[in-house]
Write a protein that binds this DNA or RNA. Structure first.
Lengths: 129, 129, 129, 129
DNA sequence: GTGGTCTAGACCACC
DNA sequence: GTGGTCTAGACCACG
């Protein structure tokens, strides 16, 4: 379900947080579905449970999951809201990138082509996510 | 010439490095022009000279400036090299963004359209580049 | 593991960087193996941790090692990359030496012959590489 | 006669010293020939006379030139000795490089070819030295 | 005056 | 415990 990239400069808890956000906003994890337990996931990834705990804490703070003591952690009911937020963030990134490209006079076609190539490769190669 | 943003999470030396990259790639600092001295700029920004030194070191490693002991730091004469570097960085950003978009199932067309809109607006508004 | 030569004119951090490059490219340090911690090595060599830190930073920029905050520094899994870098450095040295030889009017044949002799001797004596 | 390379990391005085050594050992400056005066050369290169002074001092210390107060600086009589020393240094460099190449398993042919290419280019392109 | 290296020591984030 | 950033201050080489 989750793969860690140890070469990524970001802290582990941030990687994990983002992975769950993506799983939820892409629909792989549906509304009110239960997340893996802290201990189980920690064992699976062979990392410290504290790290998972911190990820879940952050997700809860962002209202993406809710926790029930003694039962576990669950995806919030309104997954569509999450999807909207993530998409909007991405669009903002796209706009900023476009501004930079324009500033540097990088031809639009060149840029879009590179973008499409990566997109299609990712969709084709990563069916095992 | 340079302003620091202490709310920015990135380290100071990285901010400074980027500021100079922009000043140079935009032409505000021309070929073989001298950069402010390490000590002077440190005083101006009221930070430690070592921090400036580190920025200059990074810029030199990237072949954006060259340093002469006892004289100072100077913009490389090959300003085209700077443009190449910045363009390559941009392409990498594009690829990363594409990966995220694919992961979130954001339709490619939607993305490209938003992108083009921003790009063309920027080009239309900023003919004086 | 590492010995410093205080008579060497090069800065300490450069000596350390080179020593690790050799340890890795010779296979003494294998893929994903952990390097000594910044503080520990600093103590061992009785030098300042910042100096070690700088070496490790340079190694990381060259993609020879990768660092994980809170865990340590590790040899890159792509050890072949290291060989590529060292080979490229060697080629550059060869080119520079050729320029000097040309400037001094040292006959090419003489030079190449001396070179080949050393090379073949080294290969003959050191089959255990 | 002398060209400075401001991008060279070595100090200016060292560059100048080496240039004179080469001019002498390649025969461009013959035995007992007079070197340009400190002031004149400093003006010509638009650098500080102290820098030239230091170069000449080093050359004198190495017994490559001798100075006569009130008259100027002159090439030593035995220029052949200089040529021998420079050539031997170069040969040592060649041997060291060969050892490294052997250690890294860089094929000999590849190496020699790169070397010859640079050598011939330098001889062909730089007739104006 | 300039850049470059190094030390000593602090504080933060991460695990 | 780990790495990463920054400060304060020193000393050297260069011009």
């Amino acid at each position: 379900m989750i793969n860690l990239d140890y070469r990524d400069k970001r802290p582990l808890y941030e990687q994990i947080t983002e992975k769950f956000e993506n799983l939820i906003s892409s629909g792989a994890l549906g509304a009110d579905e239960q997340l893996p337990s802290v201990r189980q996931l920690a064992m699976e990834l062979s990392i410290n449970p504290n790290t998972i705990q911190r990820s879940y804490m952050e997700l809860e703070k962002k209202n993406i999951i809710y926790s029930i003591k003694g039962k576990g952690n669950f995806v919030t009911s309104d997954t569509e809201a999450i999807r909207r937020i993530k998409t909007e963030n991405l669009m903002t990134d796209a706009r900023n990138l476009a501004l930079k490209a324009a500033e540097l006079n990088v031809p639009l076609a060149l840029f879009v082509k590179e973008f499409e190539k990566s997109y299609l490769t990712a969709r084709g190669d990563a069916r095992d996510d």
